[in-house]
Design a protein around this nucleic acid. Structure first.
Lengths: 234, 234
DNA sequence: AAAATATTTCTTGTCGACAAGAAAAATGCA
DNA sequence: TGCATTTTTCTTGTCGACAAGAAATATTTT
């Protein structure tokens, strides 16, 4: 499982425990530190985080609400599996949300938003430079999440966040083979998107969002097929 | 508050309590039986449902996850307010989801789906006939939810469900004055939508979904303005 | 030895009690 | 009386313990 110091926190403020556990488990799930299908034991977590099962349970209920874990009644709770059979529905939703959020960002962004977006853009470039895959994926999600935020539609932002989260798992799953050309291309596309948003060119932003999304989809599909072939060989 | 027999259930199967409380509270919130902003007391609920606070709390955490209630740390939990200032973002999302789900239903539906949709369609017609406002709103949401289901994209279905839920509250809020022409028109539009889905005419389904959505939006906006004026007079 | 049955184990679900934090009420002080 | 301070009250947050359900193991029976 996960080898960690067994005392993540010692002294805590009332009410903060749930958020702590929720945040850590969520990250571990999305980074595949907790494998899909692996079991999540309340008692073990209670020991690890030095608290009773009650706040642990609350964190798990929230994670279940977002579909990151699944509860088998009276038996066990598992990290949700990645649904590879229905990737196409995932891609449909992802591309549409790329379009919509980028378009709305071009329409509704304010000066501060661009600052935050640019900051994450350069962070992303840095992770590409450092060839740090895990951070690259996480920061990329944060970058697009910031764009969605600038679009100021909480309904779209909420769905998009979930999709980006799931994307973190999918990308980690298939990104064993580090592809040289892929990340740098994305840095450039990100720059174009920022420019379109700043220029308040709705249609261009929409279009670039679409292209960017389809780019990623195609990339993942290629990796998917490649891995499929490897699986068959085994 | 709500006057109800204080013993909703007596003998229960382990694990079923949370779902029971969740379902009942959710319905009461969406039907405005629980007013936005009103407080939700864990102890009172525990007494009402004859169980300890633990399962009550779990139900509340889930409701909070869907934004139906809000928790003020260490103080109280309230039924979420309806955000009338940002109705336009709500409408944006709603119309887009009307389009997308109807289009996908035309593309992906199976025979059984049409059965379910038709059943809800006639149920809706019946509620219009009976002039039962509360049921009309709830069944209308169920009808469109079934269409989304037939589209087989859980990401879109999930968001659309939330939007339809929120719509139940908004409609109940403004639908004091029962408007004759409105519901019958919707029955007809529903029939057209079903036909487009069955014919697998994606573009027509998309278009009808859009028109239908905009129809509702316009209606609500009219009611909104009317009520605004009334408010000013008071 | 195989199948049916009983027992144990393991994990979740529920409970009642207590602690902490914040607001409301009461008290003291000018 | 008006304001600051203390006390009380009220609700949520956390805990440890126990019960229930299901799977795994052991036992019995044929």
């Amino acid at each position: 499982m996960v080898e960690k110091s067994n005392t993540d926190v010692v002294e805590r403020r009332r009410g903060s425990g749930v958020k702590l556990v929720y945040d850590i488990l969520r990250d571990e799930i999305l980074d595949l530190k907790l494998a899909p299908g692996s079991s999540v034991d309340e008692v073990l977590l209670a020991e690890r985080f030095q608290m009773s099962r009650t706040p642990i349970r609350e964190a798990l209920v929230r994670l279940a609400g977002e579909g990151l874990i699944e509860t088998l009644p009276n038996r066990s709770t598992l990290v949700s599996n990645i649904d590879l059979l229905n990737l196409n529905t995932y891609f449909d939703a992802l591309v549409l949300m790329y379009r919509v959020t980028t378009r709305l960002a071009a329409q509704n962004h304010r000066p501060d938003d661009l600052l935050a977006i640019r900051e994450l853009h350069s962070q992303y470039a840095a992770t590409v430079e450092a060839r740090d895959l895990r951070d690259m994926i996480a920061v990329n999600a944060a970058f697009h999440s910031a764009i969605a935020e600038a679009g100021r539609n909480p309904y779209f932002t909420g769905l998009f966040r979930r999709l980006l989260d799931e994307g973190r798992r999918i990308l980690r799953l298939y990104y064993n083979s580090y592809d040289e050309q892929f990340p740098q291309r994305f840095v450039d596309e990100h720059a174009e998107i920022i420019a379109a948003i700043e220029a308040r060119d709705l249609d261009l932003a929409d279009h670039l969002g679409k292209v960017h999304g389809e780019q990623i989809v195609e990339q993942v599909q290629r990796m998917f097929v490649r891995n499929q072939k490897l699986d068959i060989k085994l």
